[in-house]
């Protein structure tokens, strides 16, 4: 039972982490109509920045904050230099252009930080397990859950309760009209892109102590973020949250329980061959099912 609760918490943690990545992706798509493959590169940069800054400052938290600011900055620069020219073009152009950016970022990271991965050590107070409701859980994973919930709440407040959020929502439903009403659309776009980048960077730096910081780390998880935006409905932040949690739970629980479940019905040999492949397929199966039932995703933003 404790194992089950622990796996559920792991699922929640992974889901929230994915949400931060997917939220930026879906924001950028919903508002700028831009498919950004380089989103995973910003996730990677967040992790690299955090490793560097926390080594420089000697503080994990300070390093994390600096890393987020740095990713925000990189995101805004990328928007001004490259992305801005891609708006309003074909999706194929987006895919190709941002694919070029991935190559650029990966090689830049190799050039600056070297081909070997980095480690981002945790401070002592995050390494101890803490006890929640009478059982032990990793303090770091728990703090990821807390931080993600705060960020998700903050994002909700920003989008639903502030003037900027109003403009963002207005931009998502009708870009031309917002521009015609005198809103500085260019600045808004740069801000939104920077916000998405910072969220991706935060996700990257939070995942970094659990996995190693390495080149290409953003590419695998980017696909998951895409799957989430598709399941949730492109452009919908609420959809992204629901889909991210769904994917987080299914992936985590699938990996831990599917082998045992298969062993009940199949021979041990067959089960151990089939289980890893099947558990990594689960979320794609989920996506296929969602698309068969609702081709526009669970919560489609409705405008396209």
């Amino acid at each position: 039972m404790t194992l089950f609760i622990e796996q559920c918490l792991n699922g929640l943690q992974f889901g929230l982490l994915l949400f931060m990545l997917a939220a930026g992706l879906t924001l950028v798509f919903g508002i700028m109509d831009l498919v950004n493959l380089a989103h995973g590169s910003l996730y990677m940069l967040g992790a690299y920045f955090a490793a560097t800054f926390s080594a420089l400052t000697g503080s994990f938290v300070l390093g994390a904050i600096l890393a987020m600011l740095a990713t925000l900055l990189v995101g805004m620069v990328v928007e001004v230099v490259a992305m801005r020219r891609l708006y309003g073009r074909d999706h194929l152009d987006h895919v190709l252009g941002t694919f070029g950016l991935i190559l650029f970022f990966n090689e830049s990271v190799r050039l600056i930080w070297g081909p070997a991965g980095l480690a981002l050590p945790l401070p002592g107070w995050l390494q101890q397990p803490i006890s929640i409701l009478g059982f032990q859980y990793s303090a770091y994973k728990f703090s990821i859950i807390v931080v993600s919930l705060i960020v998700a709440g903050g994002l909700y407040a920003l989008v639903m309760r502030t003037r900027i959020g109003m403009l963002i929502r207005a931009g998502a439903s009708n870009r031309e009209m917002v521009g015609a009403l005198g809103v500085n659309i260019k600045l808004l776009y740069t801000l939104v892109f920077g916000l998405g980048a910072a969220l991706a960077g935060l996700a990257g730096l939070m995942q970094a102590p659990i996995l190693t910081v390495q080149i290409g780390m953003g590419e695998n998880i980017l696909i998951l973020a895409f799957v989430i935006t598709v399941i949730g409905g492109i452009g919908s932040i609420r959809g992204a949250l629901v889909a991210a949690l769904l994917v987080g739970f299914i992936d985590t629980l699938g990996r831990s329980y599917l082998p045992d479940m298969l062993r009940e019905v199949l021979s041990p040999a067959a089960a151990s061959t089939l289980a890893p492949a099947l558990s990594s397929m689960l979320i794609y199966l989920l996506m296929a099912i969602v698309l068969i039932v609702k081709p526009e995703g669970l919560f489609s933003a409705g405008q396209r």
Binding site: I223, F226, V230, T273, P276, S280, Y284, M287, L291, E296
Partner: peptide, 25 residues
Amino acid sequence: RTRGVYFIMITLAFAQMAYYIFAGI
């Protein structure tokens, strides 16, 4: 059944699914 950016991402996801299947055998 889908179009536009959904189509891009779905074909991508199916290919990744096949990738994981073969990586798991």
